[in-house]
Amino acid sequence: MQPISTLTSRTVVLPFTNIDTDQIIPARFLTTTTRLGLGEKLFADWRYDAAGTPRADFVLNRPESRGCEILVAGRNFGCGSSREHAVWALRDHGFRAVISTEIADIFRRNAQKNGVVPVVLDAAAHARLLAQPGARVVVDLEAKTVALPDGTTAAFPIEPFARYCLLEGKDELSFLASQDAAITAYERRIGG
């Protein structure tokens, strides 16, 4: 996993609340057995018409969205299904951080494991970002802050270990696999 310490990017704004993982990646694209190539299916039903032609009015299809690494979305982003494909699609498209006032639990955990920083901001800072689509912001994972376009910064919480893994580009599996002795001891304790 590619380490992240700071991200500087213009934002793409999807102001709606409760954007669920079925919107991020519809279920019909889940019959894959790899993690690859999901970026072009990202937000498929919002992004393309029934014939598969990009809808000019959808934000991701506008030229100014190209290369943006930070998605700003309404409250309760990533709710619904546990499909990690949602994060794989966002990451494959190029997003490396999602900012909201509330991010669904399973999505948040999936994001952290794939080099996508889940950023939960207070309502006032979030409102400023919603009001300025395309603003240039800096997500500083080291400092746990977002630098807003008006020069102010807003802090966001993140679990220390998740932050460490994102900063170092490490995954949790190596750590868990190193805990074999403790796991074996637990299994003995419960008798199986």
Binding site: R83, R109, K113, E172, L173, Q179, I183
Partner: peptide, 19 residues
């Protein structure tokens, strides 16, 4: 009982544990 993503499916397969 709770839902997990595919990365964690792999962790549980390998270690029967989660962080």
């Amino acid at each position: 009982a709770f839902g997990i993503g595919t990365s964690e499916v792999g962790y549980v397969l390998a270690t029967q544990s989660l962080l």
